[in-house]
């Protein structure tokens, strides 16, 4: 039968999410809270094994939210590049202080265990943070972000400007593709040119982009006025928030925020009042350090 087996999806900032994803049952603000609260976790944690726990937890959340894990493939190269940048920066340019455990030497550069362990620590911390951001972008829509801002009672102008910015990005991308196709149709393909020529010819994109952006500004301004909108509000009319009225911050939402805040509070306590999540107490670093014959890490 037509339509049988077709999974209904909802557009998100990064792709599509099934309509039946449990994340949709939560208030839109939860997604923003998730980004704001959970992204602080890796900043509080030094010990790599705890960041690994966070990474595993993120994968579980990805699966539970029915985010297509295939989306992560696109970020493999970025993650690898980040790894190499961090590894090289910390290992070769991390500096040296007396007391560091030297595990190797490349020409005049001393490779110390302390620098290597920091590279591992920083990379895993970043991995965790990037997963949080990818998750947010995979489940949130522009509308969720805007509703979140409205729920926080920010002035409508602020949330609307952000919404308009999202909209402008979309329009600019469309304009860019149109211009590129038009340039290609007249035998200009920047792909074929060396970098210096690409930079020189980039003006051919910029000029029409700016012209189109100005025209769009006019169109948006006309469309806003034609729909009875004024940033200052019309006299005697309080703007209704119809969209926000569709969502209710319920028990489930309170539990979700409470859990996120509780974990954050625990992490703050562990970081500032104990040594459990520091590199000095890291079991993983101790283990790797043991393998390299340098004892403890950090």
């Amino acid at each position: 039968m037509a339509g049988q087996g077709v999974r209904r999806m909802r557009r998100t900032l990064l792709g599509y999410l099934p309509v039946d994803s449990p994340i949709h049952s939560l208030h839109p603000i939860i997604k923003t809270f998730f980004l704001l609260i959970v992204s602080t976790y890796p900043l509080l944690i030094d010990a790599p094994e705890w960041n690994i726990v966070g990474i595993v937890a993120m994968f579980i959340i990805f699966i539970a939210s029915r985010v297509q894990l295939g989306i992560l493939k696109f970020y493999t190269t970025i993650m690898l590049n980040i790894f190499w940048i961090i590894f090289i920066a910390y290992t070769f340019f991390g500096g040296y202080a007396p007391g560091y455990h030297i595990i190797g030497r490349v020409g005049p550069v001393l490779i110390s265990w302390e620098n290597v362990s920091w590279a591992i620590t920083v990379y895993l911390r970043m991995f965790f943070a990037i997963l949080v951001i990818i998750y947010f972008l995979s489940v949130a829509r522009e509308r969720d972000v805007i509703l979140g801002l409205r729920w926080l009672r920010l002035p409508y102008v602020v949330s609307y400007m952000i919404g308009l910015a999202f909209r402008s990005i979309g329009l600019s991308i469309i304009d860019f593709h149109t211009i590129r196709e038009a340039e290609r149709a007249r035998a200009l393909d920047l792909k074929e040119l060396p970098l210096t020529h690409k930079i020189k010819k980039f003006g051919l994109y910029i000029v029409p982009m700016v012209a189109l952006a100005l025209r769009r500004t006019d169109e948006v301004s006309n469309a806003l006025d034609s729909r009875g909108f004024k940033f200052t509000g019309l006299k005697g009319h309080k703007r209704t928030d119809y969209l926000l009225s569709k969502y209710r911050f319920g028990g489930k939402d309170a539990v979700a925020v409470g859990a996120m805040l509780a974990i954050m509070a625990v992490l703050v306590y562990l970081r500032y009042f104990t040594l459990y999540i520091t590199t000095q107490h890291s079991l993983l670093l101790k283990y790797i350090g043991g393998l390299l014959g340098v004892g403890s890490g950090g």
Partner: peptide
């Protein structure tokens, strides 16, 4: 002016209060 059809339809009506 907005990112979903529903917001688009509601926009003018919200302005009207």
């Amino acid at each position: 002016l907005t990112m979903t059809v529903e917001e688009e339809l509601a926009f003018g009506l919200e302005n009207m209060g």
